[in-house]
Design a protein around this nucleic acid. Structure first.
Lengths: 215, 215
DNA sequence: TAGATTGTTAATCGATTAACAATC
DNA sequence: TAGATTGTTAATCGATTAACAATC
């Protein structure tokens, strides 16, 4: 029984890949041609065997003593993550957080291009924030199919989250990056990813308690 | 051999606790007195046994058929996370993201109080953003010990991250919530928590690729 | 009482870690 | 060649899942 496409790759691996990609691009800037798993491991403070397995998942093959070809490695990681072709996305909810996301430069390196913002506030509609035009929410029904947008970034208040998500789904959005603390109800065909700051803060708080109490 | 304090609790558990806390507080608002693990499980779409084990970790005891006392549950989770006493924090780097964090209301429910911002930009220094005064970075040496601050939130550009961290450590900061994609070098006594948006985006991108290609 | 829910013990699953042969 | 680094196979560890007795 051969299951070529069935070699599923774990979530921890997927979450580490962007860090390798970023370092590889840094090295490429400096005209380096190869990089070893050992190097990534040292910089990122993780075990080198983890790095090797992660990189192997993306299909890169290294040479003993030399390491991995940087250009090929970048290609493979980007391919694996679907970051070789830029994904256009809409951002919904242009409050503090939403505006910050609109203005964040770093996503370009992650294959993400935010093309416009959406909000309910009439004061914001029609203006541009960091060069991105802000539309009323209901314009989604027109623009999502017309611009062939698959991804939305959700940065509305918690109370509005589910209503907006229903509209996004209706409009034809396939993936939702959820910056609210709300668990969204969506059909099975829609993928969501929750970005939960309070989880990270919880981790840090527990660690801090421990060092403060010398445990 | 009795190891009372040694019952270590896993990171996945710690990361789920804020969601229970949030729901419990919502119910308390509605004057509910008890809640079942089954309820949390349904809302959050996780297995009820996971919820029960997580809650047990915080020391709450439930009653069969009834569930958990909400007030006691909130107390226990907050205690466990160290969120019963508010932690004061400084925010360093008041760019787009830093400003958004300064203005974010939600951290109050997570025992976090951002008391001031710090930046290198002379235009920002002396101004207030969302009511928080902005100081020059070097004021950290004075204010961290004087105000007895343990936690810093790092939202500076990647290039500046390590330099700023060295200063934070010198000034006496014990915990750093790192919003840059840089792996920080710190002494063993300092705890750090990296908030990595690109990891979340990587997860979502892979999921999206799968649904788009009907895998 | 009956049955929903808790809490515990055991089994499974997946990720990390260890050991080591292969090779440039 | 010697040795650093890759890639693979096996062992360990920890988290999730399953099974079930206890109880309000």
């Amino acid at each position: 029984m051969v299951a070529v496409f069935d070699k599923t790759i774990g979530i921890p691996t997927i979450r580490r890949l962007p860090a390798y990609l970023r370092l590889a691009k840094d090295l490429q800037q400096k005209n380096e041609k190869t990089v070893s798993a050992t190097y990534f491991a040292e910089i990122l403070d993780i075990d080198s065997i983890v790095v090797r397995k992660d990189i192997a998942s993306t299909g890169s093959l290294g040479k003993p003593r030399i390491g991995f070809d940087i250009e090929e490695l970048i290609d493979n990681i980007e391919n694996f993550l679907g970051w070789n072709n830029t994904t256009d996305a809409f951002l919904v909810g242009v409050g503090n957080l939403g505006s910050a996301i609109l203005g964040y430069q770093g996503f370009t390196g992650n294959g993400l291009n935010i093309v416009a913002g959406f909000d309910v506030d009439p004061q914001k509609i029609g203006t541009k924030i960091y060069g991105k035009e802000i539309f009323p929410i209901d314009k989604l029904y027109d623009l999502v199919p017309r611009m062939n947008i698959n991804m939305a970034i959700l940065a509305v208040p918690s109370k509005a989250a589910q209503d907006v998500v229903d509209k996004l789904v209706d409009a034809g959005i396939r993936a939702i990056w959820n910056f609210t603390p709300v668990k969204l109800k969506t059909p099975d065909t829609i993928v969501t990813q929750k970005e939960d700051l309070s989880s990270g803060l919880a981790e840090l708080s527990v660690k801090l308690s421990k060092v403060l109490h010398h445990k």
